Deep mutational scan, measured.
Amino acid sequence: VTLFVALYDYEARTEDDLSFHKGEKFQILNSSEGDWWEARSLTTGETGYIPSNYVAPV
């Protein structure tokens, strides 16, 4: 499993987005949709879409 870490804070803009804080780690569930990836936060357990340019591989 490839994990990603948040480089910046992000505040959700829609109900499908996932808010997160810098340093939070994610498991990517689906990265085939372009710039927005479906991810699960390893901190909160919540699932939603995150901007791929806000995260980097651990």
Score class of each variant (00 low, 15 high):
Y10S: 03
F20W: 01
E24Y: 04
V5T: 06
A56Y: 09
Y10C: 04
D16T: 15
V1C: 14
H21Y: 12
L3I: 14
A56T: 12
R13A: 12
A39W: 01
N53W: 15
L29I: 11
Q27M: 14
S32R: 10
I50S: 00
E11A: 10
Y54W: 07
T47L: 08
Q27G: 03
D17N: 10
K25V: 15
P57H: 06
W37E: 01
S52N: 06
E24C: 06
L18F: 08
T47K: 12
L29W: 05
V1R: 09
S41Y: 02
E11F: 09
S31M: 15
L18M: 14
I28V: 10
T47S: 10
V1W: 11
S32Y: 10
A12K: 08
L7W: 03
L42D: 04
V55D: 00
G45D: 06
F4M: 09
E38R: 10
L3A: 07
S41N: 11
L29D: 05
A6F: 01
Y10D: 00
Y8M: 10
A39C: 06
P51R: 07
R40M: 12
G48D: 00
Y49A: 06
F20D: 00
L29M: 09
N30D: 12
F20Y: 01
E46Y: 10
Y8A: 10
N30L: 06
S32K: 10
G45V: 02
Y10K: 03
A12T: 05
N53V: 08
L42T: 07
D17P: 02
A6E: 01
T44G: 03
V55A: 04
R13H: 11
V58G: 05
W36N: 06
R40G: 02
Y49I: 09
S32E: 12
G34H: 12
D17W: 10
E24K: 01
S41Q: 05
V1L: 14
G34L: 12
L7K: 05
F4I: 04
V55Y: 01
A6R: 00
F26K: 00
T14S: 13
E24S: 04
I50D: 01
I50E: 00
L3K: 06
T47G: 03
D16W: 15
D17F: 15
E15C: 12
D16V: 14
W36D: 03
Y49T: 08
P51L: 07
G23H: 05
L29R: 05
H21T: 14
E46A: 13
P51V: 02
G48T: 01
Y49R: 14
S31T: 13
A39E: 00
K25S: 07
F4H: 07
W37I: 07
S41E: 02
S52T: 06
A6C: 02
T2C: 12
I50M: 02
L18Q: 03
N53D: 11
A56R: 10
G45F: 07
E38Q: 13
K22T: 08
S19W: 03
K22Y: 06
F26M: 07
G48S: 01
A6Q: 00
D17C: 10
T44A: 02
T14K: 14
L18T: 02
T43L: 13
S41W: 01
T43D: 11
E24F: 04
V1D: 15
P57R: 07
N30M: 07
Q27R: 08
E15V: 12
F4T: 04
K25P: 05
L7T: 04
F26C: 01
L7F: 03
E33M: 14
D16M: 14
S31C: 13
G23K: 02
T44R: 04
V1P: 13
R40E: 07
P57Q: 09
S52E: 04
D9Q: 04
L3M: 11
S41L: 07
Q27W: 14
R13I: 13
S31L: 10
I50P: 00
V5A: 05
V1E: 15
Y10L: 03
E24M: 06
E33V: 11
L18A: 02
T2G: 12
F20C: 02
S31W: 13
T47R: 09
A12C: 05
E33C: 12
P57E: 09
L7M: 09
T14I: 06
T2S: 12
S32T: 13
E24Q: 06
S31Q: 15
V58K: 04
L42S: 04
S32P: 10
T2A: 11
S31D: 14
F4P: 00
N30H: 08
I28M: 04
I28W: 02
R13E: 12
G23S: 03
I50V: 09
V1G: 15
F20P: 00
E38L: 15
L7G: 02
R13Y: 09
V5L: 05
D35V: 11
W36P: 06
T43A: 11
T14F: 15
T44I: 01
E24H: 07
A39I: 03
L18V: 05
P57G: 05
E15H: 11
H21K: 15
Y49H: 07
L7N: 04
E11K: 11
